[in-house]
């Protein structure tokens, strides 16, 4: 698609970004900017960073934003570019726009309601919807990972985790079912092995306090009740480093500045990242992420 034919999509994109900012400002969030070029990227199992000289481009603003939470910034949000090596497809770009926000003193469940409020505000500036058959203003359907897997894949990844099978079944058996839903879908209670930087649920240490939102079968947002335990965080980074090394992936230095901030104390908080380009895909009604980005 050439640039001039993206006019409508890019005009909507600008209106959506304005609406997003007003939404958070009206809720007493502070807009922040954190480094795009970072000394070390957040280490995750399957996310590779682009090198930038002797540093890296951020794969997510998470660790810097959490340092701000540790420093007492109670409600912060950021919209900006993130970079992931080798990710290009209909729903992926190696450079894309992430919306990320943190709210001190709440758990991830509170963010379900707030994300739905955000979707409503955004749907309004885009004509109200429905968008490709999905009503963004409707209350979400909420499922646990266990119930979805038991129903559509015949096993419970929380009881007996198998990483490879989990990825395949999620993509081949579960996500196609979610694509038929006509309202936003929240999938919660991920297995501990897929906790990433979420804490465990107090009532069940096998379950991470993490949820993902799907819209029309496309993963839109990922939320945690954040892990605040510095020791456990260090262990998770170390385990991740070992696994990356075992797979022949680059191992990044541990982010000691972040770990030090955690050691000094991080308040209970919830955080969430939402793919702005994917949200726009839905609002515009396209299956190609490149259609909603000027240069992609």
């Amino acid at each position: 698609m050439d640039l001039s034919s993206k006019t409508t999509a890019l005009q909507l994109r600008a209106r959506v970004l304005t609406a997003v900012r007003s939404f958070f400002v009206s809720r007493d969030y502070l807009e922040v900017e954190t480094p795009i070029r970072v000394n070390t990227p957040a280490m995750e199992d399957h996310i590779d960073a682009e090198a930038s000289g002797d540093a890296w481009l951020r794969t997510s603003p998470e660790l810097h934003m959490k340092r701000m939470v540790c420093a007492g910034f109670e409600k912060i949000f950021q919209v900006g570019p993130c970079f992931r090596q080798g990710e290009r497809g209909q729903r992926h770009l190696p450079e894309y726009t992430m919306l990320e926000w943190y709210w001190t003193g709440v758990s991830s469940e509170v963010l379900i309601g707030e994300t739905c409020d955000l979707l409503q505000a955004v749907a309004d500036v885009a004509g109200g919807g429905p968008f490709d058959g999905v009503d963004l203003k409707a209350a979400p359907k909420i499922y646990t990972i266990s119930e979805l897997f038991l129903k559509w894949a015949g096993w419970d990844p929380v009881l007996d985790f198998d990483a490879d099978r989990f990825d395949f079944d999620l993509v081949e058996k579960v996500e196609p079912v979610l694509s038929k839903e006509t309202v936003p879908v929240v999938v919660k209670n991920f297995p501990a092995e897929r906790a990433a930087l979420a804490r465990m649920r107090p009532e069940n240490p096998q379950v991470a306090d993490r949820w993902e939102m799907y819209v029309g079968g496309v993963e839109l947002a990922n939320a945690y009740t954040e892990l605040t335990d510095a020791r456990e965080q260090r262990t998770r980074f170390e385990v991740c480093a070992e696994e990356r090394s075992g797979r022949g992936q680059e191992v990044y230095p541990l982010d000691e500045a972040f770990l030090t901030a955690l050691e000094r104390g991080m308040p209970d908080c919830a955080g969430i990242a939402l793919g702005v380009d994917r949200l726009l895909m839905r609002l515009v009604g396209t299956d190609e992420i490149a259609d909603v980005v000027a240069f992609a």
Binding site: E44, D45, H46, G86, E87, R88, G89, Q90, R91, H92, A163, D164, F166, D167, F168, L170, V171, E172, E175, F190, R194, A196, E212, E219, N222
Partner: peptide
């Protein structure tokens, strides 16, 4: 389609057609 389910590995979903028989097949 290139896919990457939440925090999981990169997967490559293919729909294909047998050139000789025309039969469809899906493979990830």
């Amino acid at each position: 389609q290139f896919v990457k389910p939440g925090k999981g590995q990169a997967l490559y979903r293919c729909k294909m057609k047998n050139i000789m028989t025309g039969t469809g097949l899906e493979r990830t």
